[in-house]
Design a protein around this nucleic acid. Sequence first.
DNA 1: TTTCACAAGAGGTCTGACATCTTTTTTATG
DNA 2: CATAAAAAAGATGTCAGACCTCTTGTGAAA
Lengths: 269, 269
Amino acid sequence: MNLSELSETFAKWNKESAEGMQLTQKVTEFLRKIIMDGFLAPESQLPNELDLSTYLDISRSTVRSALATLEQGGFIKRLWGVGTFVAKNPPTYTNLSLNSGVTQLIRSSGAVPGTAEIMITTRPASESVCSLLQLEVEALTIVIERVRLADNRRVVFTVDVLPLKLFEESEKDIALTVLRQFIDDQESIYSFLRQQMNLEIHHGIAWIKPLSAEQYIAEKLQICEGCNILQIEQVDYSNNGEPLALSHEYYVADAFRFHIYRSNQGVYL
Amino acid sequence: MNLSELSETFAKWNKESAEGMQLTQKVTEFLRKIIMDGFLAPESQLPNELDLSTYLDISRSTVRSALATLEQGGFIKRLWGVGTFVAKNPPTYTNLSLNSGVTQLIRSSGAVPGTAEIMITTRPASESVCSLLQLEVEALTIVIERVRLADNRRVVFTVDVLPLKLFEESEKDIALTVLRQFIDDQESIYSFLRQQMNLEIHHGIAWIKPLSAEQYIAEKLQICEGCNILQIEQVDYSNNGEPLALSHEYYVADAFRFHIYRSNQGVYL
DNA sequence: TTTCACAAGAGGTCTGACATCTTTTTTATG
DNA sequence: CATAAAAAAGATGTCAGACCTCTTGTGAAA
């Protein structure tokens, strides 16, 4: 991808992206996306900062800010006096530092995503759910259980929990119908929250844990009871730091090869 | 921690830190450390950027660069027009995005770290090790096996692999003796590499996997065969992107509560 | 041929100005 | 006096340009 292609693509991206979003963030996301989607080959050199700023039509400091973020995330490597390069092994969608959803994960592994045994129920939150989502005791929640398929193979069982208080009282029924539609269409819950509720997820905090499949989960995933599975428990937060959603994901042990980019910055041992 | 304390502490930090290190990086590490070590309370407001730059005696752009990195890592939150705040739940040492070592991990959980069953051997690399460390077939490696203790409880079994070619031919024996000394003193391999070999680890890439303990590992950890364990396989890279070390870590399932900060930046779902 | 000095090119840092957003204060208006 | 509008204050975001420092290539000198 050369400079003028970059220029055009970014101009389009710049117009289409959310209006409230800051310029630095747009540039960061733009560059990250073209790296992750393979438009800039690993180890290839990026244009210098001045050229980038000129062709993207932004200032050098904004470019630098974006590059700093990308370097921190392991996407690029900057060498003083030499240049800026795409990393040798830039993160992919199986990188847990990025909050991609299960569908994206399956798709990026080259498989066709699918869903089975969808169950949407309303139930009062358990004590642990209340504490994680900062709800009053027994507050009602919407619980979405799904078995996720990759090329028709059962790979993940997911349980998503949304506080019912996210919905206006008057709109509850409509919202639930729309939610159901999103799920059936294999749209992510994130896009439902963004498009329908105008809620943007800013980040998540995940806990990982090795488990043996208990009976219920083993049945869902159609694996033997006691088989190894990987649990990822995650709370997603809004821009304001409010918890918006809780999810439990149970991965068949060898379904994905999760990795993490671990920066050494600032940690002297 | 107020502005003048910040000022003094950073001046000291600035002098003591490695000479080749860039200013931005120093500031980033400094601020991250005082956040992680609890000198700035969660949700407390940081001084504004101008004050920070004045008191740390650096320019505002350098401050901003550091703050951008910290925000990306989930340590702080910046609100346009309002201010900069420590995150509600800033990452801790159990955050896998930071490449801290096992000793640091144990220490930060409040336990006293220890080591048992240290075994250091030299052996030719297996095929998989060769490919991960980019070695020629059958190249010799140093293998360090350790059982790690937290308050005398066996929590992790670690296997570290270093290519023998890291050492000059003439210094091999000396280096091995020193390495042995570092291990016995519970110094990390990272600090051995830095202090003795002048090699700096820049980042690692880790893969996580749920496992059942096979016999050998079960014995080392003194748990039942087939018990759940979490495996973290990691390759550490130098500044140049060369793989320097490989490690396998086997964690008793409930020993730690690993978490990951998952940024949503740039990933639209 | 080798070595050294210099120039070119790239990222790193500094400075100061202005833009934009949020919050608070002041002022004008009914 | 109460309320709404306007202004000011304070913070982060963006821009522009200069200069510093490091790496690399080139060409002149030994």
